[in-house]
Design a protein around this nucleic acid. Structure first.
Ligand SMILES: [Mn+2]
Ligand SMILES: [Mn+2]
Ligand SMILES: [Zn+2]
Ligand SMILES: [Zn+2]
Lengths: 136, 136
DNA sequence: ATTGCAAGTGAAACAATGTTGCAAATATAG
DNA sequence: CTATATTTGCAACATTGTTTCACTTGCAAT
């Protein structure tokens, strides 16, 4: 699916900033930070517009925000067409050496046994360690 | 274990600010935010000292920082005497209605199957939903 | 009890991340 | 092409966290 079709299929206006964000994520193997996306966008980047567009893209389910801790945040492209929050769920890996983030699509989120009366909406799993390149 | 013994057993100097933080957490069933602790500390609270003391208490394993997302952060008292990061590990529950956080000590962290070559150090699990009081 | 000093404190200044209000610009439907 | 609802970008603000540095304090040795 090409960049502009992704936006069109979600009824989101096709603007240069949004196209640039989605393109940057499509061209990357891994989720990217704001700064990494900013570099791809060059002089087109505007902080305020970026945050607003990220919110639009995230609530449409086009991207997912990955919060490692309160200072390290990455954005990953979701498999499109799946906008419900329970779909497309998976764990994320954070390499404490090279600071890369990997979507672990094969690591599914288990059905946790919650105390009685509790209702589950969603879960976030961050697995920290060393990636293949960094674990020698 | 009383408040000052906790500090002494970790070789951490017993200062009014640290005692107040630990006391606030001991008197609470649930993990607390900075602001909730600040209220307990009254005029003794100082932002810079708070952050520095929290870092000391966290790296000693006396408290653990719970990052729900980049704006919601809580601090929970750890079972003391266990300072290694792999001990005392458990999932955390965040109620999206009343914004409370609960340590789910009974929800153990499973052994995730990582891709080959990856090394695991630590994991954070945040389960979001509605708590017992809020799920009717 | 007094003293010495390493450790801790708090003010000021800075940095990163994110939000809101508003006027100007623009994407898209008709 | 035009109308209009949406989007943009600036200014200003809010929150969270860090660094530097002079001053104070906890605590252990005397
Ligand atoms: Mn992902
Ligand atoms: Mn906990
Ligand atoms: Zn790595
Ligand atoms: Zn609740």
């Amino acid at each position: 699916m090409n960049t502009t079709d992704i936006l069109k299929s979600h009824d989101i206006k096709k603007t240069p900033g949004r196209i640039a964000i989605v393109k940057a994520l499509q061209e990357s193997e891994l989720p990217l930070s704001e700064n990494e996306i900013k570099i791809q966008m060059e002089e087109m980047y505007d902080r305020i517009t970026f945050y607003r567009n990220m919110q639009v893209l995230a609530s449409a389910g086009i991207v997912h925000k990955i919060v490692i801790d309160n200072t390290i945040i990455k954005y990953g492209l979701s498999c499109c067409g799946q906008e419900h929050r329970h779909q497309n769920e998976h764990a994320h890996f954070y390499c404490e050496k090279c600071h890369s983030v990997v979507c672990l699509k094969e690591v599914r989120i288990p059905d946790y046994q919650l105390p009685s009366g509790y209702k589950l909406f969603d879960s976030d799993i961050i697995i920290k360690g060393a990636c293949e390149k960094c674990s020698h």
